[in-house]
Simulated scan of single mutants.
Amino acid sequence: MTVSFIRRIASPKKALTTAAVAAATAGLALTAAPAQAATPATASSAQAIAHKMIPDAAQFNAFSKIVSHESGWNPSATNASSGAYGLVQALPGSKMASAGGDWKTNPATQIKWGLDYMNSRYGSPVKAWSFWQANGWY
Rank of each mutant, 00 (worst) to 15 (best):
G114E: 10
G101K: 12
A99M: 15
G114S: 09
M96P: 00
W103V: 04
S124V: 03
M96E: 13
M96C: 03
K112P: 11
Y122P: 05
G123P: 12
D116V: 06
Y122I: 02
S94E: 09
G123N: 08
T105R: 06
D116P: 04
Y117R: 08
G93S: 09
K95S: 08
D102Q: 08
A108K: 08
L115M: 05
M118D: 05
K112V: 08
G114H: 06
G114M: 06
N119A: 10
K104N: 11
W103R: 01
S94M: 10
A108V: 12
M118S: 10
G93Q: 11
T105H: 11
Q110S: 07
D116G: 13
K104G: 01
D116Y: 03
G101R: 04
G100F: 07
L115E: 12
G123R: 09
P107N: 10
Y122G: 02
S98I: 12
S124H: 03
R121W: 02
M96L: 02
T105E: 10
P125M: 03
M96S: 05
A108S: 15
P92I: 01
D102E: 13
L115D: 07
G123I: 02
Y122Q: 02
R121C: 07
P125Q: 03
D102C: 05
D102S: 12
Y122V: 05
S124K: 14
Y117I: 07
P92C: 02
G100K: 10
S98K: 12
T105G: 14
G93H: 07
V126C: 00
W103M: 13
W113H: 13
G114A: 09
W103Y: 14
K95P: 00
K104L: 15
G114W: 11
D116T: 15
G100A: 10
P92N: 03
N119L: 04
Q110C: 03
G114N: 12
G93P: 13
P125V: 01
G100Y: 10
N106K: 00
Q110T: 12
G100T: 07
N106H: 03
I111P: 10
P92D: 01
V126I: 10
V126L: 06
S120C: 04
A99R: 04
W103I: 02
N119Q: 15
W113P: 04
S98D: 15
M96Y: 01
G114F: 14
R121V: 08
A97E: 11
K104F: 00
M118I: 04
M118F: 14
P125W: 05
